[in-house]
Structure formats: C-alpha cells, structure tokens
C-alpha cells in the first residue's frame, strides 16, 4: 500500500515539476539571458529553489521587515525583476502573476493561490517611481 502511495506521489511530483513551458517562453528576460550565458543563478539547484522558495521568501520577509536586513538573497523583488517578460506588441511587462506567467504556471497546475501580489508589485521597476 505504502509503496503504491509512494509511486503515486512520485508520479504526481513529476507532473508538478514537468515543465509545461519546456521552451522556457515565460522564464523571464533577465533569467533567460543568464541561462543563455551559461551562468547559473540558483546555485543550490533548480529542484531546491522550486521546492523551497516559499520558505526562502518567508524567511527573507521577516529578516527584511523586522530586522532591516536588505541583502539581495531571497528577495521577491529579485524574482520579479528577473522572471518578468515584456509583451512583444505593447513593450509593457506582463505581471508575473498573470495567467501562464512565471509565477503562475506551477501554482495554476497545483491549484495554489499565492497572496504575494495583492501587495507586492508585479512588474519590474527600478528606483522610486
């Protein structure tokens, strides 16, 4: 029985992590150029960032908000800046949480609603304005 469950889990996980966007069309502009240059940003490995990013973000949010630690590591701003893509026609960024955008594909698939973006900005913008 346990073995069956385990197999089922493995199959499901495979499904979760199976890349619907195998062409990486929604990877984001900066992320794509990092990838193209052969560099690796998430040095712990993609499986780690895929599985653990909620923990990384929660940890960082407390550090930043409550303790004023403002390093770049685990910053949601960083995710958005790197993983947003521009619409080819309008030259405007798609919000990262729009349907089929980077922050949505997996969450859509597993029916998870994220609440980051009711407050956080969804497109990159540097500076104060």
């Amino acid at each position: 029985m346990y073995r069956l469950v385990a197999i089922l889990m493995v199959l499901l996980m495979g499904n979760v992590f199976a890349d619907k966007h195998a062409d990486h069309s929604n990877l984001g502009e900066e992320a794509s150029s990092i990838k193209a240059s052969g560099k690796i940003f998430h040095t712990d490995g993609l499986d780690v960032i895929r599985k653990m990013h909620p923990d990384f973000l929660n940890h960082k949010r407390d550090k930043t908000l409550r303790e004023g630690v403002r390093t770049k590591e685990g910053s949601l701003k960083g995710c958005v800046n790197c993983h947003a893509i521009k619409d080819k026609k309008t030259n405007q960024y798609h919000p990262v949480n729009d349907k089929d955008q980077f922050c949505s594909t997996c969450h859509q698939q597993v029916s998870v609603s994220v609440d980051c973006f009711s407050c956080h900005r969804t497109t990159p913008r540097k500076g104060t304005k």
């Binding site: 009711s118 407050c119 900005r121």
Partner: peptide, 29 residues
C-alpha cells in the same frame, strides 16, 4: 480597495493597515 502598480519598495494592499514607515527603505540605505 484593490491596488496595482505599487512602488517596488513599498508593498501596499487591500485589507491591511498602513502608516508612515519613516521611509524605512531609505533609512536602511
């Protein structure tokens, strides 16, 4: 109300309370 296009350094959203932060993002800088 629902908000969009917030400042990058100042997340704000419906259903929460807010007030002057003493521009904490600037002060930390």
């Amino acid at each position: 109300e629902d908000l969009t296009d917030q400042r990058e350094h100042m997340p704000r959203g419906k259903g929460t309370v807010e007030s002057c932060t003493l521009c904490v993002h600037k002060v930390d800088n």
